[in-house]
Amino acid sequence: MEGAIQTLVTTFLSSARGKENLDGKSFKKMVQKQLGSLMEDTNSASAIKEMQQGLDENNDGKVSFQEYLTLIGYLANSLSQSKTGSSTQEAS
């Protein structure tokens, strides 16, 4: 588990190239390189741009670490559901 968390942080920091946020180009490159096997449409620039805009809660045109974690949470939840055969989320 520790290794997975370190990988998530390192991937973001390396993709952001020393900046606090991922700009559009860095986000696209990270998605294509790191998430291609988990996601559909990673070769579609428009799909990636739409994803970035959906994550960009403060509308600054960039993806912050917190916004990146939203994507990771969504992907982890989707993977969990596919592995368990669950198609609906339980209400909390």
Score class of each variant (00 low, 15 high):
12 F>V: 00
77 N>A: 15
4 A>L: 15
35 L>K: 01
80 S>W: 10
85 G>S: 07
36 G>S: 15
42 T>D: 03
66 Q>N: 08
57 E>A: 08
66 Q>F: 05
18 G>C: 06
4 A>K: 15
33 K>W: 05
51 M>D: 00
53 Q>G: 02
85 G>P: 04
2 E>I: 08
87 S>E: 14
88 T>G: 14
46 S>L: 13
10 T>P: 02
21 N>M: 04
70 T>L: 06
88 T>A: 15
59 N>F: 06
80 S>Y: 14
23 D>G: 00
66 Q>H: 04
39 M>L: 12
60 D>T: 00
56 D>S: 01
7 T>H: 12
38 L>S: 11
86 S>W: 03
38 L>C: 12
15 S>P: 01
19 K>R: 12
28 K>D: 05
7 T>C: 10
63 V>C: 00
14 S>C: 10
52 Q>R: 06
70 T>W: 04
73 G>D: 06
35 L>F: 08
37 S>H: 10
76 A>D: 07
9 V>S: 07
79 L>I: 15
35 L>H: 02
80 S>K: 13
48 I>T: 05
20 E>C: 02
36 G>V: 09
34 Q>W: 06
75 L>I: 13
35 L>W: 02
32 Q>C: 15
12 F>W: 01
80 S>E: 12
28 K>T: 06
48 I>E: 02
46 S>F: 10
92 S>Q: 14
71 L>D: 00
10 T>L: 09
87 S>Y: 12
18 G>M: 06
71 L>Q: 01
60 D>H: 02
24 G>I: 03
80 S>T: 14
70 T>E: 05
57 E>M: 05
20 E>H: 01
47 A>W: 08
49 K>H: 12
52 Q>G: 06
22 L>Q: 00
61 G>Y: 07
26 S>G: 07
30 M>D: 00
55 L>D: 04
50 E>N: 12
48 I>W: 02
65 F>L: 01
63 V>K: 00
77 N>Q: 13
20 E>K: 03
52 Q>D: 03
81 Q>D: 10
84 T>A: 09
54 G>C: 03
90 E>K: 14
6 Q>S: 11
40 E>A: 14
64 S>G: 07
72 I>Q: 04
42 T>R: 06
84 T>D: 07
12 F>A: 00
4 A>T: 15
44 S>H: 04
33 K>Y: 05
10 T>F: 06
4 A>W: 15
25 K>E: 11
72 I>R: 03
14 S>F: 09
24 G>T: 04
41 D>F: 05
6 Q>C: 11
71 L>G: 02
47 A>C: 13
21 N>H: 10
30 M>H: 01
53 Q>P: 02
79 L>E: 11
29 K>G: 00
